[in-house]
Amino acid sequence: MMTFNFDDEKPIYIQLAEGIEDAVLSGAFPEETQIPSTTEISVGYKINPATALKGVNLLVENGVLYKKRGVGMFVATGAVEKIREKRKQAFFDAYVKALVLEAQKLKITKEDVIGMIEKGFLK
């Protein structure tokens, strides 16, 4: 099931959308399968139903989910690829920029950072 903490700094509906995306990426919600209803999500995570709906609608707009009238919400075909592509773009902003900033604060050289990254890949 989705696991995410709501202590993050982002608005909850965005955290919820990312949590569902993570579940799609991990295979917990495979493509063309039904995901929990917004009521189940809001009860399960104790969040306002309007917030849950907003998060789910965001993914419908992005083409990750689609609605089947009277049935529920499904993961779209190609959703995994779509999410990966989007996440790659966000990767630079979220991780690389932050990494460089912290390295500069700690006075770690560019060469050392690259060495550390290489070491990270060995594990």
Partner: peptide
């Protein structure tokens, strides 16, 4: 408390 919040959301959704 957890049961209360969940019951409240459940009722509100319905």
């Amino acid at each position: 408390r957890e049961l209360f919040y969940k019951a409240l959301i459940d009722k509100y959704s319905e």
